[in-house]
């Protein structure tokens, strides 16, 4: 389903060049829950963003459903991403001028789906946020915000969910509840690629990739 072929990413130029990723290749199949382990600063976030089409690799190709995503126009790529890819970021990723419900609804609308408040509400309730539906980001804890992001990513039923340290800097209880939600999403048929430095989570994965991504 996802095929990463000899991808490398270089930041900067000349003496200041930083090789974030060098010649990385791997493949992920439909229905998998793959975890990509690696230490901080090993280019995990970068590879996730490349797969999502949010940044271009310096070299190499990425195929999603047999399509080379970097051969698409920006418009096509955006549309493709909107329909097929759900993203959960490491950092705070709620839109601060929208409340939880509107964040999730925007996820639906940007994916080109019908604006459906009930569906959005159900997605939030599934994340255990039934009493935070109208809250803004500054009224939510980090864990709650993360759960809103997951609800927003899942509500459009993406073919693949890309998660960047979804449990980073959260307490163990919150970490566990978020992992349970991802597990449920996986059981419901979503393919998941998750990058993390926390190798104790490997019991949730169907396959583990451990690579030092920097050459």
């Amino acid at each position: 389903m996802i095929k990463v072929q000899k991808v490398s990413k270089v930041y900067g130029a000349g003496q200041n060049q930083i090789h974030a990723i060098g010649d990385l290749s791997f493949e992920i199949y439909k229905g998998e829950f793959v975890m990509l382990f690696g230490p901080s600063g090993s280019g995990k976030t970068t590879i996730l963003n490349i797969i999502a089409g949010l940044t271009r690799p310096s070299r190499g190709k990425v195929f999603l459903d047999q399509q080379n995503i970097f051969e698409m126009s920006d418009r096509q790529l955006t549309g493709f991403r909107a329909r097929n890819i759900g993203l959960v970021f490491q950092s705070q990723s709620m839109l601060t001028h929208l409340n939880s419900l509107d964040n999730v609804r925007l996820g639906l609308r940007l994916a080109g789906k019908k604006d459906d408040p009930d569906l959005a509400k159900k997605a939030l309730i599934r994340m255990g946020l039934e009493d935070r539906i109208l809250a803004y980001a500054n009224e939510l804890s980090a864990g709650q915000q993360r759960r809103v992001s997951i609800a927003r990513a899942l509500v459009k039923r993406p073919k693949i969910l890309l998660c960047d340290e979804p449990t980073g800097d959260l307490d163990p209880d919150t970490e566990k509840s978020i992992m349970e939600m991802l597990k449920k999403a996986h059981q419901a048929g979503t393919t998941i690629l998750m990058v993390t430095h926390n190798s104790s989570l490997d019991s949730y994965a169907t396959r583990v990739l451990q690579k030092n991504l920097v050459r």
Partner: peptide
């Protein structure tokens, strides 16, 4: 910028 980036990631066109 961050929010715009997030929206682009969610599928907002330029």
């Amino acid at each position: 910028k961050r929010e715009i980036g997030l929206m682009r990631a969610m599928g907002a066109t330029r």
